[in-house]
Write a protein that binds this DNA or RNA. Structure first.
Lengths: 339, 339
DNA sequence: TTGTAAGCGTTATCAA
DNA sequence: TTGATAACGCTTACAA
């Protein structure tokens, strides 16, 4: 590793003082045109780049936002990130991303690192394992230390900070109502266990939609997937055992697994069973049949989250507002699977 | 933003010197058991966290690896990242990820930021727009400044650094030979324009496989997609106009679009047309029919890249080895689409 | 117009 | 056993 060019070296080389170099490079008029040109030329020639680390230390600001997400293979998170980056770049912030891989330990590690000076604040979706454990001390600690945090998607009620969430219940409700309108009467749901907050809310929306239409919830039609690795077979079994004319999957994985299983059973989608899915991927439009989905507007979510965070970062001390939770509305995209 | 707890404040609070605090917290035996306990208790109570920025400045090392990728919605990149993280964490490095969104400007910006002190080195897959422009000055500059870089996947020949690439040609060759073995004789390829290096190599592999079996390449059967937004219709048209019994898609997107189009035309896969795809996603196993793919071993790629980088980072100055290019081999995963 | 010095948070060296 | 000081690279008040 070659040592990098510093102001000091430039100063020594050109026989001026460090501060002269600093000022010249920042176009201060107090430095004579002459020296300024000389210094800038030299810096350009040797490709001087100011050391952000030193700047951060000096300013006690990094102008960097840290994003911490559970998984990276997620179209939904990708769109959220795009939204965050858009706002961040507009406001002169950089963005770095860390991935917890849904592991509690990774999450803690990454948060520690980011909190250790790399970023001014966080935008976080907590890991599944963290939600399962219910151990949020790392989040609270970091906030307590004065680093602003915005939780999104996989949020935690008991952590006090700004939050942005999808209106999961509303979305699920919309999905199920759509199936009802299409004439489905025995509608099943394939969802996650309840400690995953979004799964829980989507299940609630499912119940609400049915109840609002006077249809009692048949618990036999509620499948909660515990173990993702065994989801395929669980779903297949569920479909074999229960007779349904509509299925609501809380994510694309579950929904496509269901269609696959139905396909194997010789059951036609949408002719015999209609399917609506919550969408977190680009798979929906591509699948055969293409999936009717509840669309999550990830970019909007990212933009809101970034704005919330930047507002905190730039708020004058003392005039902080109370924490907000913003809802992002979903929308129904009709495709082949529910025709 | 609350100011964070520093050594200085602890020192003032406990009426000792900064250096005593520093030493106590790092368990130096020169500090008496007594003071040490006192200081550590205080630090723990108020949740002291050393400022990494200051440490980085002091050590001129961040122990952080920067990854710069074109897109984040990519299963393949996700697996590479996982591989990098594995090795990095084992060696005590952190990882931060930046996304160029395939934009040249984003790539330059992100690289500048990372080069500005946030990381010790890079692992980069260049943006499509960058490959198109052929402008690599930002990469060269950063390397010239002494920051080690490893290019992977979307590499650039003319940039001198370590590289890790998939053996795309071999993989493509394997795919086409598989189709030939299954009896296909009119095999089409759906690929990218040639400035995308992987597309080019895969096209070469396609030609090589055919030629090695004495089958002349029919240029009518080579579809180069220019504009991703119009890929669907281009592919549909291609399939309507050309008669084929085998199709090789250089990515899942192309392959699934093809199957979709065939499905609409009433052509059965694999009965009438067999399909093999290069795989960069989790879609393959899930699709109906599931896709026979050339698997890319992203994790292995990530591990190799991380090892190359860390070797550079920890090499004693003067004893640097010449730059290496490592090949990652692919493997064929047979599924329904080529049965 | 240029330079000196202090400070950001930390650690290493040396002195007390 | 503890503390003062310098240094990492940079900016900025202030002095020259």
């Amino acid at each position: 590793m070659k040592p990098k060019l510093t102001l000091k070296q430039i100063a020594r080389e050109l026989d001026v003082s460090v501060s002269t170099v600093s000022k010249a490079l920042r176009d201060k008029t107090e430095i004579s045109e002459d020296t300024r040109q000389k210094i800038k030329a030299f810096a350009k020639l040797y490709n001087y780049r100011p050391n952000n680390i030193a700047l951060s230390l000096k300013n006690r600001k990094t102008r960097t936002i840290g994003i911490l997400i559970p998984e990276i293979v997620h179209h939904f998170y990708a769109t959220v990130i795009a939204g965050i980056e858009k706002v961040a770049h507009e406001q002169g912030y950089n963005v770095i991303i860390c991935v917890s891989n849904n592991s509690f330990d990774h999450e803690v590690m990454n948060l520690e690192m980011l909190a250790g000076g790399s970023t001014d604040g966080f935008i976080v979706a907590v890991a599944k394992e963290t939600q399962q454990r219910g151990d949020y001390h790392h989040l609270k600690e970091v906030i307590h230390q004065g680093m602003p945090m915005v939780l999104f998607d996989r949020i935690v009620e008991e952590v006090e900070c700004d939050k942005v969430i999808i209106d999961d219940e509303e979305g699920a409700c919309m999905a199920v109502k759509h199936l009802l309108e299409r004439g489905c009467r025995r509608i099943g749901i394939i969802t996650t266990v309840d400690y995953v907050s979004v799964g829980k809310l989507r299940t609630q929306g499912y119940r609400k939609a049915l109840e609002s239409c006077g249809i009692p919830v048949d618990e036999q039609l509620v499948l909660k997937i515990e173990d993702m690795d065994r989801s395929e077979e669980q779903i297949a079994q569920f479909l074999r055992e229960q007779k349904m004319d509509g299925i609501f999957g809380v994510n694309e994985e579950f929904s496509t697994s269901a269609i696959r299983a139905l396909h194997k059973m010789g059951v036609k989608v949408p002719d015999q069973v209609r399917v609506v899915s919550f969408s977190d991927g680009s798979l929906s439009a591509r699948f055969i049949p293409s999936l009717t989905t509840i669309n999550q507007h990830g970019a909007e979510m990212g933009e809101k989250a970034a704005n919330l965070l930047i507002n905190r970062l730039e708020a004058d001390p003392g005039e902080e507002e109370p924490y907000k939770t913003q809802m992002i509305h979903t929308s129904l995209v009709e495709r082949e699977s529910s025709l």
